[in-house]
């Protein structure tokens, strides 16, 4: 492969495209953990709902660029609204409870959402096409490359920069960071922490749903799509560091390259490579590559 620059280039692009697709999904997971300190097992289910909602919107609007845009935004909006109801009505009652209860709650949410999806959309498989302007390939000089995969390569950094800007350069971002560090103090200072938590959960869920809608043109929309992606998302946030946006970005890049290049060089061993890498990183830095150790937090 290294002897052929064109193939090397395509495989690097493939790695980047997969990595950015994964980052978009993992970003919401790390955001929710970073502020709420909840490991959200339902994140994959939110991703699945996003793909199904986009499918329904596209059935109404027809196959068009605008329809696809509405599908992605609609998936985020609807999932966000659902997440608000879930967070205010149920999850918020568990913030002061032990972690096991929170884990069980998000796991129960997975089961409920899966059954709801089956009731609404059935158990069949569906497909969403790429929007017309992103179909086919574009010539990048060295080789043609699929436009939609390239689009994902661009969307990942855009979303990363947008979240970073929001977190680091806006007043709301400062409040979120404060909530992450000491929510009792923040509450005492007069900030509505409940609203902050709701906003974070809604944003994380919306990101997952938009990730599902954006991933759909490269995959099938079916009732099993959540269980495949949630494993990758957890690997990314664990190796990157729970709650670290930069960590998730780097973790997604590592997993993307490992998956694509590993399938060429590691063959059947690629299936364990990501887990081995996660174990090694956790042994050396239990808090992940860009996470903070507990003693660093205080």
């Amino acid at each position: 492969m290294f002897a052929n620059p064109m193939i090397l280039f395509i495989q690097v692009m493939n790695s980047l495209s997969l990595a950015m697709n994964l980052f978009i999904i993992a970003a919401g997971l790390t955001l929710i953990f970073g502020v709420l300190r909840i490991v959200n097992f339902a994140h994959g289910a939110f991703y699945m709902v996003g793909a199904y909602v986009a499918l329904s919107i596209l059935r109404v609007t027809g196959d068009s660029n605008l329809g696809f845009l509405l599908g992605v935004l609609g998936a985020g909006a609807l999932m966000g609204a659902m997440a608000f109801v879930v967070e205010r009505g149920l999850l918020s009652r568990l913030y002061d409870k032990e972690h096991m209860l929170q884990l069980l709650f998000t796991f129960a949410l997975v089961l409920v959402i899966k059954d709801l999806v089956k009731m609404i959309w059935g158990s069949g498989q569906y497909s969403i096409g790429a929007p017309p302007f992103l179909r086919g390939a574009v010539n990048l000089g060295i080789s043609p490359y699929p436009k939609y995969a390239l689009f994902l390569c661009v969307m990942g950094p855009i979303i990363a920069v947008a979240i970073w800007f929001f977190m680091e350069r806006t007043r709301w971002g400062r409040i979120l960071r404060a909530a992450r560090e000491d929510r009792v103090m923040l509450n005492a200072l007069g900030t509505d922490v409940k609203l902050v938590y709701s906003g974070v959960f809604v944003t994380g869920a919306a990101l997952a749903a938009m990730g599902g809608a954006l991933a759909a043109p490269r995959s099938a929309v079916d009732p099993g799509m959540d269980s495949l992606v949630i494993i990758d998302a957890f690997i990314i946030v664990i190796i990157g560091g729970l709650g670290s946006l930069l960590g998730s970005f780097v973790g997604a890049l590592i997993l993307g390259f490992l998956t694509v290049m590993g399938s060429i060089y590691l063959k059947e061993w690629v299936i364990v490579a990501s887990y081995v890498m996660m174990v090694v990183i956790l042994l050396v830095r239990p808090w992940g590559l860009f996470g903070k150790a507990d003693e660093e937090r205080h």
């Binding site: 052929n4 193939i7 493939n14 995969a149 495949l228 992606v229 060429i264 059947e268």
Partner: peptide, 19 residues
């Protein structure tokens, strides 16, 4: 050119098949 069970990304394999 085999991929692990339940893999969802086939881009590397597709490139190998093409070449």
């Amino acid at each position: 050119f085999l991929v692990p069970m339940n893999a969802t990304d086939f881009s590397a394999t597709i490139t190998q098949l093409l070449s």
